[in-house]
Design a binder for these strands. Structure first.
Lengths: 415, 415
DNA sequence: CTCTATTAATTCGAGGCTCGAAAAAAATAG
DNA sequence: CTATTTTTTTCGAGCCTCGAATTAATAGAG
């Protein structure tokens, strides 16, 4: 806010603006851009002409024949898929996937592999990621597309600079410098992001009507995750990716959590916690390594069928999440919530206690109870968010600056 | 972030920048401004010349005789105290105070009065504030100073627009439109702010070395309050002033809170909660209306003297605050903490259990334990923060725009 | 088939802004 | 009184946006 401003910052900001409306709409005439941005027609003309000659935009001479109106027909402009490509990597428990995505957001090629992350060292994990990314970089080189950005998403915590994997449940190792490893290998700027933050990015891009300026995405699976959008921006911690909702305290000195502490929300609402409670194993039982989706589904079925430990376990989970959201809402006010991940399949079981707990907290005091939507399939969201994150970076930090030749010869060329 | 930029926005931003370094330093030559802002000497010359002819700055031809160096001597510039004035109002339990403050930040006149806020209606409170502000507006008119901003601080919650008192412990009434009342009466823009947010503003202004980009101010008195600075900006809720730290949940279905809910942190750490626990009154005892500082001091003395219910009460308070901070830090990472208010006098009693609880939560997991500083006297901070808030608004929103004649004839003139 | 109305997009000059280089101003040192 | 040093201002080059005027490209009317 208190930064110096120069003359050409104005153009940069307005180029950003034009690119941002085009990223949302895919196909817009100069007149429509004028209307959406509020810029004057002359400015839009100047900016789009620059972007066209830079190869960042292209004219879409559509065969749609919308020419039913009188007057000079509009020329649709869109992001040029060949302007650049980004690589989006998703690292999860025992699985690695990555995709090469063109500038318009379409997947060109994708790669998947299974790997035993828990048994691997940090170096081995970094090497696996590097190998897969290498394949995609080669692919990009072969197609003569430059790759100005790589984004990696994983479950866990990164530093605030989004460069290092600080901690993740998918490995025993901490402080894996994934960003530096990839950047060193390919000379391409990298961000390492929390998966739930990427879910939030994807939700905002997908349904801006419902997920607007402020909302919360909660991932329910083996552990808990959260991504928050606050005032239109992804909310991250000051030193890390932040948003460790699952490790807010629910019950002081309560159930044993996977993190080694006690009483975390996750220790009541993670799959392992629900499983533990449903099997009457006691709060001190160390968390199971992983629980199959089918087993959780069976638990949910049992809970729906009859009152018993299973149902009580899901209720306790709902209660923990409800109190946690209440505490969160006390700090930053209620906002729509997306319940994402396999746990969303059992949302019918946890919703009641969740709302009941929420009503008992300050979050519900001055404002109406927020809406809850569910989406059990998190992976597409993480992939889409990760790609969007990388593309938005290119929009804002690279193509918003003039004097960049985007369609460079080398696939590895970096500004 | 995605706003349109025009040519003159550049000048506005750079005027802001110049005003912000001058507000921090009080006395700076053009050369020093050049160094601190990074602007070119020509630009600084142009901007300061505008600001001087607008009457916003003044030359301080000092008798300090710093002329021991060779070369043309520097001319010190400073904010012109007569450029404008603001009114800062602090409304607290049974007391109202307000001050007329010149543009350089010095108090011109201040007013105080005692009133029985709990017995008053919202209209009566608004009328009292209006009357006191009226006196100061008259004073400003008499001195031929225009008042472009009023800021009101109080303990409680406002709407996100900082216009309405939504709830406050100082009155039984809710939704008091203080902002509209004052704006209607005087035609001056008004913000209504949470007192702890103003404490945070004041701490940042007072000690930017320690309270930098990220820190938390916790007010311990009858109830609890919190103000947060996140990435250099005051963090407010999306719909309200937010930061209701005291009403994050500590123990599900726990002790009765002043807000009517159960288990809030405040229900363990507010004065009434400590009192209640120290007197073995039980968690369900309705909160006392108010407890004299002397009584709390006596309680603290007893707690220091011997192990017993008093000491346990303070320990429970520390524990509640510690778990609460831990949950907060799970979301946005650890940051320095200021413990402000009368409760800071007993910080020696609560610090141990606080740190112990904090160590049990995720907040302390990846980062070192943050620092804790105390300041028992909150009123000066609230006053200073409130004044600073109003002045900063004038800097940024009014004087950063050119073409404003600041030293208007009428004291009530508003842009 | 030509002409006119209509809508889209571009061009051009006016007016801002920052910056670097050069000039002017104001003091000390000798 | 002159040279030196440091601060501050002035001036032209180079961006940028915007409004008004101009050019481009179509559908419909006669």
């Amino acid at each position: 806010m208190t930064a110096i401003a120069r003359s050409d910052d104005v153009r940069r900001q307005n180029r950003r603006l034009v690119l941002s409306v085009l990223r949302r709409s895919e196909k817009l005439s100069r007149t429509e851009i004028t209307a959406r941005t509020g810029l004057s027609p002359s400015t839009v003309s100047a900016i789009t002409s620059d972007l066209l000659s830079d190869g960042i935009l292209r004219e879409l001479r559509d065969g749609d024949a919308t020419a039913t109106r009188r007057g000079r027909p509009q020329v649709a402009l869109g992001l040029n898929p060949d302007a650049a490509a980004v690589i989006a990597v998703v690292l999860s428990l025992n699985a690695l996937s990555a995709a090469l995505i063109d500038y318009a957001g379409d997947v060109i090629v994708s790669e998947q592999s299974r790997l035993d992350t828990l048994a691997m060292s940090g170096d081995e994990i970094a090497a696996s990621v590097r190998a897969m990314v290498g394949t995609l970089v080669d692919e990009a080189t072969y197609r003569d597309m430059r790759v100005p950005r790589i984004a990696v998403a994983f479950q866990g915590i990164t530093d605030a600079g989004a460069r290092t994997l600080l901690w993740s449940p998918i490995t025993r190792e901490i402080d894996i410098p994934l960003g530096d490893a990839l950047e060193g290998a390919f000379g391409i700027p990298v961000t390492v992001e929390n998966d739930c933050n990427m879910i939030a990015v994807a939700l905002k891009a997908k349904d801006p009507g419902h997920y607007g300026e402020n909302f919360i995405a909660v991932l329910l699976s083996h552990g808990l995750g959260m991504g928050m959008m606050v005032r239109g921006e992804l909310f991250t911690g000051t030193k890390s990716s932040g948003g460790e909702f699952g490790h807010m305290n629910h019950v002081p000195d309560g159930a044993l959590c996977r993190c080694g502490r006690r009483g975390c929300i996750e220790a009541y609402a993670g799959n392992y916690a629900i499983w533990r409670a449903a099997r009457n194993l006691g709060d001190d039982t160390p968390p199971a390594a992983d629980i199959a989706d089918a087993d959780m589904a069976a638990l949910a079925a049992a809970a729906r069928a009859a009152d018993g430990p299973e149902r009580r376990a899901f209720h306790a989970a709902g209660r923990a999440i409800g109190f946690g959201l209440g505490s969160l809402f006390a700090i930053l006010d209620p906002a729509p919530v997306a319940i994402v991940g396999q746990g969303a399949l059992a949302f019918d079981l946890i919703e009641g206690p969740l709302l009941e707990a929420l009503a008992k907290t300050a979050g519900g005091q001055h404002h109406p109870i927020p809406s809850f939507h569910t989406d059990p399939d998190e992976m597409p969201l993480i992939r889409a968010g990760c790609a969007m994150r990388a593309l938005t970076f290119v929009d804002r930090e690279i193509f918003a600056r003039g004097a960049v030749s985007p369609v460079a010869g080398s696939g590895r060329a970096v500004a």
